[in-house]
Design a binder for these strands. Structure first.
Lengths: 252, 252
DNA sequence: CGAGAAGTTGACGAACCTCAAACGATGTGG
DNA sequence: CCACATCGTTTGAGGTTCGTCAACTTCTCG
């Protein structure tokens, strides 16, 4: 089977054959979870790490007011629950948006793999930096942009991330989010999301319809959104080697 | 001298005498930086770690539109540039809001300390989880709350964080931010910040004046803001031990 | 075919921004 | 010590963006 984790992390590789095998052996323990069910819930004891193999999930939190906020999306290859090593409890939910297949990884196995294969540890660390960078970008999005720009920015981000895992065909991709989901992500009502989507469509930028996104003019869309994909890559690599020799045990 | 780093991390301790000494020896290389100057700038090569000993800084980014967004505040005891181990460049600025004293730590020295003293490594990891939790909380703040609630929430967060490092006297603390800074944090114009501050004052919740915050009714303020300080603590501890024996080298 | 969920549209009001002006504190040079 | 400039704060008027409420339509799936 195609290993989404491997293709994702290999962006930060390259990995040796042995490392690839190690990654493959991490994701043997698969299970399916169904649409709109919880992978974790706020307050759950953090005890496991899950790798998304297929499907679409989100990190979110429900508020006492009845509102819901989405903090991020988990696509194939992404990892949930890396904070198991430190935190005792989850401080947000992880919800399956579509039916998903995830691989359950025992924390001990993951640690052993990281120890044996330093470049895997590094690639994982990198992932968490990207998650943080995405949070900052979302803050910019929420604070400074209008609703249509916000929406355009989110659609750009998802396109770039889905492209990485081979889920964009031409200029079209599947987006299993309702307008309510989009609103809960962008701090908008579903009604206003609807209107903003229409504006993007009438501007000839992008059409969202029937669970699919049709990008008409990616360059104009990115410009409109103020989208710069640098934050999704966090340029830089091969940097760690400087400290490798002096402290082989910790990082590598 | 009082070691802000130590008092901060000791929340996650306790530390042995040896560990305390290790922390003290990390912060010997002090330097002063002046108000409104850059500790790092976006694009700088990430090559050093800095511990804030006194003063007030922020992570921020300037946009081409002329707008500015603040992503977080660095108070005494906080650490800047921990991503040096992975990222090659900074993807945001770190700006001194007041005159500051920071300690420059060589990454190698920090790694060595983390290797020798596992509970220090753990406490640092914890810090970065809190930074991430704060980002999520700010997203909720921006997406779901009105301007006066946002402001109240930020004032609550800063009060709790400053309390930890002994910078709150009674129900008053120094806040060296302009209304423009507050606006750049909360996605508001300084004008609207001004009006919202007046509302908070007239509601008898809190007064911000002359660089000082006077909290009149902390419980009502927290309720008004929907503030729950759990995210600043991230409950959980002693959790790591489960994997310690099998993989002493990586984490501990 | 029917029922529930999701999407669409319009009218109205609230929250927030823009522009403009004035006021107050602070620091500097004469 | 005062005159002045600068920076931050405060207030008002009017416009834009977005939320609320309500009705209606279209999809989806049993």
């Amino acid at each position: 089977m195609h290993n989404a984790l491997r293709s994702k992390l290999e962006r930060f590789g390259p990995f040796s054959g042995e490392e690839k095998n190690a990654l493959d052996s991490l994701i043997l323990n698969k299970r399916s979870i169904s649409r709109r069910s919880y992978l974790f819930q706020e307050g759950d004891s953090a005890s496991t790490v899950d790798v998304v193999l297929s499907g679409f999930l989100c990190r979110s939190r429900g508020l006492s007011s009845g509102d819901r906020q989405i903090f991020g999306y988990l696509l194939p290859g992404d990892i949930a629950g890396l904070n198991v090593f430190i935190a005792r409890r989850m401080d947000y939910d992880i919800v399956a948006i579509t039916d998903c297949v995830v691989a359950n990884v025992r924390p001990e196995a993951l640690l052993a793999t990281m120890e044996a294969h330093p470049s895997i540890a590094k690639a994982l660390w990198w992932q968490s930096l990207i998650v943080e960078a995405v949070l900052r970008e979302w803050i910019v999005n929420l604070a400074l942009r209008r609703s249509d720009e916000r929406l355009a920015h989110l659609l750009c981000e998802l396109m770039v991330r889905l492209e990485r895992v081979g889920l964009v065909k031409g200029s079209t991709y599947e987006l299993p989010l309702t307008q309510q989901d989009l609103g809960d992500t962008l701090g908008l009502t579903s009604i206003h999301v609807n209107r903003s989507l229409r504006e993007l469509r009438e501007a000839g930028l992008v059409t969202v319809k029937g669970g699919k996104v049709f990008v008409h003019d990616i360059e104009r869309l990115k410009r409109f959104a103020g989208f710069d994909d640098a934050y999704l890559h966090l340029s830089g690599d091969g940097h760690l080697e400087r400290w490798k020799q002096s402290n082989p045990a910790i990082i590598e």
